[in-house]
Design a protein around this nucleic acid. Sequence first.
DNA 1: TTTTATACTGCTTATTATATCAGTATTAAT
DNA 2: ATTAATACTGATATAATAAGCAGTATAAAA
Lengths: 213, 213
Amino acid sequence: MKGLTDKQSKIYDFISECQRENGYPPTQAEIRDHFRFASLNAVRSHLVLIEKKGYIRLNFGKARGIKLSSSPKLLIRKTKESIPLLGRISAGVPIWAEQHFEDFLPIPPSMFGGRELFALHVCGDSMIGAGIRNGDIAVIKKQDWVERGEIAAVLIDQEVTLKRVFLSADSLLLKSENPDFEDLKYLKKNSDFIRILGRYQGIVRTRNNRYRT
Amino acid sequence: MKGLTDKQSKIYDFISECQRENGYPPTQAEIRDHFRFASLNAVRSHLVLIEKKGYIRLNFGKARGIKLSSSPKLLIRKTKESIPLLGRISAGVPIWAEQHFEDFLPIPPSMFGGRELFALHVCGDSMIGAGIRNGDIAVIKKQDWVERGEIAAVLIDQEVTLKRVFLSADSLLLKSENPDFEDLKYLKKNSDFIRILGRYQGIVRTRNNRYRT
DNA sequence: TTTTATACTGCTTATTATATCAGTATTAAT
DNA sequence: ATTAATACTGATATAATAAGCAGTATAAAA
């Protein structure tokens, strides 16, 4: 099965979000409004494509006839109901590469609302203002962009950190939530060694952050 | 909340079934067909009554606008690998009583190191210094004591809160981790309405702390 | 370069669903 | 015995929603 494009992915996520929120899927018009499309057809054609890729099933003609496919083909093979915990990330190697897998959190990904989730140990207290502390396990949704101001896992020179990301025309601003840390600013052109790994979805904090799978 | 009549119960079950089966609720016409009603009004009047009793919420005017109210015992089966999320705790009733169960976190208790765990929604920011924020789900190990200075879930006059507990010879001191909150001190002899429910084991924080089991 | 897939606008029509009005019959509770 | 609440039939108006047709623009693939 092919992957979704960015736009398709956003639409899928919105549907998924509605589903969780309301217990039923959105109508095409609701999707249109959310994405500020002028036309229903924009929605429609997307849905058809997303269906073709197998992520949803359209109940043609019926109101709110969007069904999320039961197994949104996670790339996780070990166990279906778990989130891979990544260890050290090597720059250059795709994060999804198996060599990074350190462990698996025995938590169904649906709990954190998404496909393609992974988890990381949080090092340092740079996001303490957001209630994220050293040693926590952060759950991240794999994607290479985030909305302005969202918290993302960012790869900076071999190191992964969580930061709030503000992307502007020519630069990338990474803000910590701790007055002791300075903001980082990168010009876009020489930001080769910066990489957004995914969007912060939440945390799990156990007494020692160790467990058995 | 009053109980449903037989017929209402069957209709509720059908809705619930559709929900599980299709991912979205049935239309009124689908309900009619399933029960071989001749009239849509039969359905409608039932729905209105079921809503009045609080088991569903009707999104008037919208297609498939039936939302199942989270009705724990009916919808969710307890599995060994889950942690019960308790709703409102009634003083006097043992916390382990089923009536308190609101939902189940699909997380194996072993992950938080123990049997007899339960979870609670955190209200307020009194423990923000410990990185526990309003809306988080706190995982608690059921026990009626804690070590000096540990964080516990404490029942104070109907309300459950997390506090650091310091027990001395004749008094019980409850400390918040937020300068805006005052410490609470109770003399042992009149601490009848204080009850330690368990020891804080950790937290789970998802985007909206809602999920489907 | 041509083709193909994606990402849309705008308008119209057909269908699906819900709301509402007007009744009847049955049972449980004053 | 009378009132409520429940459990329906039937018909119709209206709104909510999806489908269809005809296009434009852009980027990626062949």
